[in-house]
Amino acid sequence: MASIHTLARQVDPCADIRGRLASIIARHLGDRRESETPVSGLTIHGTSRPSEPSSYLYEPSFALIASGSKRVVLADETYVYDESHFLLTAIGLPTIVQVLNASPSTPYYSVKLNIDLELASELIAEVDEHGLRAASSETGMALGPVTPPLANATLRLVELLDTPEDVPILARPLQRELLYRVLTSGAGTRLRQAVDLNTQSNRVARAVRWIRQNYTHPLRIKDLADSVGMAESTLHQHFRTLTAMSPLQYQKRLRLHEARRLMINQRIDAGTAAHRVGYESATQFSREYSRLFGTSPKRDVRTILDADANHVRLAPVD
């Protein structure tokens, strides 16, 4: 007699939490797509339709989706995640982001918490007493599984939006709990990187900060390596490991992302934007812009503005 194998229906332990999370986000967003909150570093996001690919500079942060899915492109690496995974970023990284799944009946909702590096450092020191292994050298972005404890910690932090009078007292301990859940997850080494990379002793982090502060100026790798006390080959190796880019590629992407932001937010033309971010040749700018974003600056900006003229606002590089 033939055997019939069936899979038992899996109960999603986080489904109710995500529903409550999405409800709070929707209520506080209203008709906006993004909003800062009274909780320091916490922003909420939502949309009822898929988005065009857009520029986004991630700071050290934790991002969780309550509904929908998203694609994040970092250089040649692509991260696609939904309600079952969170995104953790260890250092400022220029990316291309796109909401993939969203509709009027099932909108996309998410939260992002910029990591309080001082709080995370205190927490890591305490957890280390229990023998947590040291961080490995990896790209500064990772996905981790959303567990019920982590989802619950996120929900309780976001619930403070309904009781803003509790924020001064409860926000920090709730952030601490959330960071603890991240630290003890499979992506916990990235939280360590977020702390370690932002200490003054980290040479690659100093190189990243210098480029971000001076991205409109010509970049000489020898000068950059000398300024952080590294050999050029060593700087290249560790910089690429962390960012998935060389220093020159990192600078180029910062320039192109910022030019895109200027054209969209300030409605300036491509030539003016190119000059402001450090390009001397408008032709070179247009060629490199098209290579990164897949179309010319003029056409790209027109598409974005036509899609959502009232809501598209990109964050500046610094």
Rank of each mutant, 00 (worst) to 15 (best):
V301K: 01
S40T: 14
E52N: 12
L170H: 09
I91W: 03
H45P: 03
P173L: 00
S201R: 14
P53F: 08
R133A: 12
L157Y: 01
P218Q: 05
S61H: 04
D76P: 04
S35K: 15
L157R: 01
V228K: 03
I44H: 02
H236D: 12
A66V: 07
Y250C: 04
V97I: 13
P168V: 02
L88R: 03
L262S: 00
L57T: 07
R261G: 02
H275C: 03
L21D: 04
I221G: 04
H311E: 15
L113N: 04
P218V: 05
T163E: 15
A63V: 14
A90K: 02
I44P: 03
N114A: 12
I91Y: 04
L64I: 11
G186I: 08
L157V: 01
L143E: 10
A15Y: 11
R253L: 11
V228N: 04
L235H: 07
S23H: 11
L42T: 05
G46M: 08
L256M: 05
P107R: 03
A187M: 07
V11A: 13
L88G: 07
L7Y: 10
D269G: 14
R260D: 09
S201N: 13
P297L: 09
G131V: 07
Y215W: 08
I115T: 12
A135L: 05
E288N: 08
I264L: 15
L119P: 07
L191A: 07
V158H: 03
F285D: 10
G41Y: 04
A270K: 08
L224K: 07
P168H: 04
R209V: 09
E288D: 13
A120K: 05
L100W: 09
A125F: 09
H275G: 03
R33P: 00
I268G: 05
R276S: 11
R20H: 10
S281W: 08
S67E: 14
K70I: 09
P218H: 02
A15R: 15
L143T: 06
A125N: 13
S136W: 09
Y79P: 10
S296R: 15
L132Q: 13
A102T: 05
S110G: 15
F285T: 06
A231P: 02
V99T: 15
T243K: 01
A153D: 00
M230R: 11
A315N: 10
L219M: 03
I124W: 10
R181M: 14
A270N: 08
V228A: 06
I4G: 06
I4D: 12
K252C: 06
L160I: 01
P94F: 01
H28S: 02
I44E: 02
I211S: 10
I211L: 11
T47G: 05
E258C: 08
Q251I: 07
A259L: 03
Y109D: 02
L29Y: 02
V277Y: 07
G19P: 01
T199R: 15
D306T: 12
T295F: 01
R9A: 13
D300N: 14
A225V: 06
T189K: 10
R260I: 01
D76C: 06
A274W: 07
A315I: 07
G294F: 05
R220K: 15
V80M: 10
Q249I: 00
T234I: 12
D128P: 00
